[in-house]
Nucleic acid binder design. Structure first.
Lengths: 190, 190
DNA sequence: GACGGTCTGTAGCGGTCGCTACATTGTGCC
DNA sequence: GGCACAATGTAGCGACCGCTACAGACCGTC
């Protein structure tokens, strides 16, 4: 198969296949230990080739964040079928419920990692986070009751409540799906 | 200088001094690259001694989280002087304002890292996060208007809104240092 | 002065990190 | 066929990781 290469565009298909495999790895293992060699193993290639395809680890992570963001939005909007919400309360309840479903929860975990990195100043993370948040807010504004005054502002407020519920979920209901290796109780500090 | 050792208590003071120095380092550099050697450098000792005093890195981090939690609560409650809030709205506004102050913001950054780690399943992080959150919620419940029905539930809801606002802050306003001209409050672009 | 604890410095272990050098293979084009 | 170049494998770099071995310094007790 032949390929027209121009101006740094290497191989869209192969690149996407790599990204999909790496995204799966990140979803189950987290962003923090997303090092080149494990990612390469997950994608069936070598760290050498990842650098070849993406230029550097930073660029790889940036591409990975974009990929994850798209998947997350598609997954979430596929879960929320098309009617309007009856109220802000309903939007909060249903969106939190959707995001704590097993097939979405890993994206939320990564999302929280992105948030933390964004707060710490990571440019790529903040950019991706802003895009995701803006997309969700816009999507939500379009589904608020028709009589909503200032739907954008209302949607932003609802998003804040949702994100807050996710934070609370993270530190309290740490119900994990089935991670094989949990800590076998290291000795407790004083 | 000599030191009286009693009751198996090795050296509370020295330990605390180390923790304070390391906490400062974590506050400015983040939890993710809190490796032994940089922490030791920040505390004026060696990685060898950190392991000696804390047993392992995990136990060190756990102790560090407790230390940071205490500092955070003290700092925050010192900022919010003692009257009751007039309304939930005021509580949200004032607590978000307090937590985005320069002297508190680093704690929020670390807090978001703790949240992300807790969501990923980190035991120590989840425990510390739960303690911090419970403490804040209780503190807040005691300052809600006297006619509040179910102050604990109300406080929880307010905490969710606050945490949500912090998440939104992280991906939008955090650390705007100098990127090319964009306005700091993009409430509704387009 | 010898002993047995607490504390500390030096050196190093095996391993992983992001990344690179170099050589080789495959492929399209003339 | 012969060339240019993308794609890939192997090997390795220097730095850092958590942690340990070992030897000593310090100190109260006898």
């Amino acid at each position: 198969m032949k390929r027209l290469l121009q101006e740094g565009m290497t191989d869209q298909t192969h690149r996407d296949r790599l990204l999909t495999a790496m995204a799966a790895h990140v979803l189950s293992h987290g962003l923090n230990d997303a090092s080149l060699r494990p990612l390469a193993r997950a994608a069936g290639t070598s760290d050498r080739m990842l650098i070849y395809h993406f230029g550097s680890k930073d660029q790889l992570i940036a591409a990975l964040l974009v990929h994850l963001a798209r998947d997350f939005e598609q997954l979430l909007s596929a879960l929320m079928t098309g009617e309007r919400f009856a109220s802000a309360e309903e939007a909060v309840t249903r969106l939190v419920a959707a995001q704590t479903r097993p097939e979405v929860i890993d994206y939320v975990r990564v999302w929280l990692e992105i948030v933390a990195a964004a707060a710490r100043g990571g440019r790529a993370h903040r950019d991706t986070g802003a895009v995701i948040l803006a997309g969700l807010t816009h999507w939500l504004a379009d589904r608020l009751p028709l009589d909503t005054a200032e739907p954008q502002a209302a949607a932003r407020a609802i998003m804040a409540r949702i994100e807050g519920e996710l934070v609370l979920w993270a530190v309290s209901d740490a119900n994990r799906i089935a991670p094989p290796g949990d800590d076998p109780t290291p000795s407790s500090p004083s």
